[in-house]
Design a protein around this nucleic acid. Structure first.
Lengths: 157, 157
DNA sequence: TATGAACCTTCCCACGATGGCAAAGTCAAG
DNA sequence: CTTGACTTTGCCATCGTGGGAAGGTTCATA
């Protein structure tokens, strides 16, 4: 029902190939909401503005937004991305710093993964023991309600 | 430097074997802060009060707190624990419901684990390619800054 | 030209679960 | 009575994201 495809709508003020926040969002995959947020916390520099106050984004800005998007997708925290952006912009950076930062993130991920796998393991063991029928009998609830950890399986918990 | 061991300090009002929030925290492993929070959001019933307004906890309350603590340790969300507590208190429950809830949690965990492992995988590959020395050359930053995803390894990303 | 759709702006609130701090009241022991 | 260890409530912070309100702008079309 839209006679005009969105790609032809709104090319900004066509000042210099800059686009509005909505197009920047589409182009980068970062929501307009988050773009504003990133600007407000100083992760990205303040966007340019049209005379009426609309934010404008040039290609470099879009490039940075894509960088942020990709870094988020890899699980880097905002703080880490801040550091990555700084390194990215620093021609005299050492790749060692980037690698160290990345390794730290990997280690954090591993920690969380291990934690969740331990949970999963424990839960699966409990679920396996639960017959899962109409009766109220339930090893899962029994475990949760246990006065102290009964190490049934011999594993220390 | 503390002349009196904490275990001998404060046995509450000794009314009926009920204890103050601090002791309830120690006994359950849930911080006093979180006990109040859990009460405020309705996860646990409002604690009894002394005449002066101190919360009091009986053995059943401690039992419930331990239940919550253990469930949190297994990664259940507050909402899920709410359901678990309801099932725990329902003599006519079916173990199937408990098992289903647990399985759902396991599935969620698996999803998150898979996601994080994918991140870890990608990061390790990048880190491996990065020599990590003084030079600014860095495949990690190159990847983050890539205009589009270059599927170097043949994996679609 | 006026209207309406689709955009943009700022500001506030929400989630998950937890922690911290501050001001004030209470309790028990010295 | 004073002191210290507790308790109370309340507000703010985290982290990343979403939702919505109230209002302004742009632009195409009737």
């Amino acid at each position: 029902m839209k006679p005009v495809p969105s790609s032809t709508v709104n090319t900004g003020t066509i000042h210099m190939g800059t686009v509005n926040i909505g197009d920047a969002a589409k182009a980068s995959g970062v929501s307009a909401k988050m773009i504003r947020h990133y600007e407000s916390i100083g992760l990205i520099p303040s966007a340019g503005r049209t005379e009426s106050g609309y934010r404008t984004y040039a290609e470099t800005d879009l490039h940075r937004l894509r960088f942020v998007k990709r870094a988020r997708a890899l699980g880097f925290s905002i703080k880490q991305i801040e550091a990555l952006l700084a390194l990215w912009g620093d021609r005299r950076r050492s790749s060692a710093k980037v690698k160290a930062l990345t390794q730290k993130h990997i280690d954090e991920l591993e920690g969380k993964i291990a934690e969740m796998q331990a949970m999963k393991q424990a839960l699966q063991q409990l679920a396996q023991q639960c017959h899962g029928d109409d009766r109220p009998d339930c090893p899962i609830l029994d475990d949760l309600a246990a006065e102290q950890n009964k190490s049934k399986t011999g594993h220390r918990c």
